[in-house]
Simulated assay, not measured.
Amino acid sequence: MIQQLLQANWPEWNGRLAKGPTGWNNTTHFIHNEQRRSVMRIYNTHRDRARIEFEFAVLDSLQRVPLSFKIPAPISSMSGDRMVRVQDGSERYACLFAYIEGVRPEEGSIQAAYSFGEKTGELVNALAVCSIGMKPVYPPYYELLQSYPVYNEAFILDFCNQPPPAFKDQGEALHILKEAYADICSRLESLKNLPQQLVHGDLNFSNLLVDVGRPYTVTALLDFEFCTQDVRAMEPAVVISGFMGMADEKEAIRQFCEGFAQRVRLSAEEIGAIPVLMRLRMVDVFLHFLSRYREGTDESSVLREQVDMLAAGFQRMEYCQEWLDDMLFQCLL
């Protein structure tokens, strides 16, 4: 199927295929031939052309800003379009991107944490001056209730208090998530007043590349699919939430924040909101996987894993709240 897509739309890029990383939302394939290399991305969870068009508009705007790292560069097909339908009856879209040198960081390693902070701060500054001329497709994180209208407080309470059979033994974890959901919903209105701009919204170790010979240096930031207008402090909050639970979480967060502060300084109000934004991100992840389960996209085992992981994350945040607040203000103010 992939080679048929290439032959029909990007024949000069056709070549040897290698399966790339598969995420929750898309699959990738590497294509190699004697002249060039590329990456095909297939969007699995939506059939919405407007989402990809906004993503590409952001990438086009960023291409005009000097950056010390690479970002995805879409390749036009023979017809001039940069997205094509997959001819398998699924109505999914496929896009081709120029290959970017680099490797994903070694799992559990924090070697690139400082560089990750620098590049994140650089991206924040670049996105602040981007002119898109299009309305974002994805809502900001703080519009949680509008983003998941079906999964309102009554639904969440019912699901957590009287879970389906597959989740009956996760009562304690679901109680933690229920309490976190209620707490975050009570704070959403106050978050809207924080400084806003375009944000990537999903930066983590799976969405970056590091130099092969210098694994402490980030060479690329990837996957701008969820880029939208949101609270500026959400960008570091998403990254920091991903460090929680790592063996060297404290050092990883410190290095990231020190690198980020080389490019961006946040206000005291923004810094104080980061732990709340981290919890908001985690609640959003819970609702995201709950919706995937309810829609039949994932088996119950996927949601079970997320429930346990997120509940542990909320407990971890309670435990480390004091040192996290001190570190954030020490490094970012």
Rank of each mutant, 00 (worst) to 15 (best):
Y43Q: 12
A154E: 14
C320E: 12
Y114W: 12
F286R: 04
G117H: 05
S68K: 09
T28E: 04
L332Q: 07
F205L: 11
R82H: 11
D183H: 11
L96P: 00
F54I: 07
C320H: 08
N33R: 04
A268H: 11
V264D: 06
L123N: 05
V238P: 01
V231L: 12
F260H: 11
V218M: 02
L203A: 11
D211Y: 09
A311E: 05
K250V: 03
K70C: 12
V210Q: 04
L6Y: 02
Q262A: 15
Q87M: 13
Q262I: 01
T22G: 08
R104I: 09
Y43N: 10
Q146F: 03
P11L: 11
A18F: 11
R214Y: 07
M234F: 05
H288F: 12
N25P: 04
S77F: 04
T217Y: 08
Q35D: 13
Y293N: 02
Q306I: 15
F224Q: 06
T45R: 10
R85S: 14
D308G: 14
F155Q: 02
R37C: 10
N193H: 14
I52V: 15
Q63E: 13
E258W: 03
E322Y: 04
I184P: 03
E318P: 01
I156P: 05
A112N: 13
Q162N: 15
N33K: 08
Y319W: 10
S38H: 03
L310E: 00
C185Y: 00
R254K: 13
Q196S: 14
R279W: 01
L194E: 06
F286G: 04
D88E: 08
Y138W: 12
M309E: 09
L280F: 01
P136I: 10
L177V: 01
E299A: 13
Q87N: 13
H200V: 05
E118Q: 15
L333I: 13
V137F: 08
P236V: 02
L62Y: 03
P164Y: 08
R304I: 02
V86R: 09
M327Y: 00
L324D: 04
E322H: 11
R214E: 13
D211I: 07
F314T: 00
I132A: 05
L303N: 07
M309T: 11
E55Y: 01
V129C: 10
E299S: 14
I271L: 08
I184H: 03
G80I: 02
W10F: 04
N161D: 13
S115R: 07
W24D: 12
G121E: 06
L324P: 05
R254V: 06
L157F: 08
R281Y: 07
I176T: 13
L277T: 07
M282E: 15
N204S: 14
Q170C: 11
G80M: 10
T28K: 04
C160T: 14
A173M: 09
R82L: 03
Q262Y: 02
F54M: 08
L123S: 03
G242W: 00
L222V: 09
L280R: 07
V285M: 14
T27W: 06
I240S: 02
L290C: 13
S115N: 05
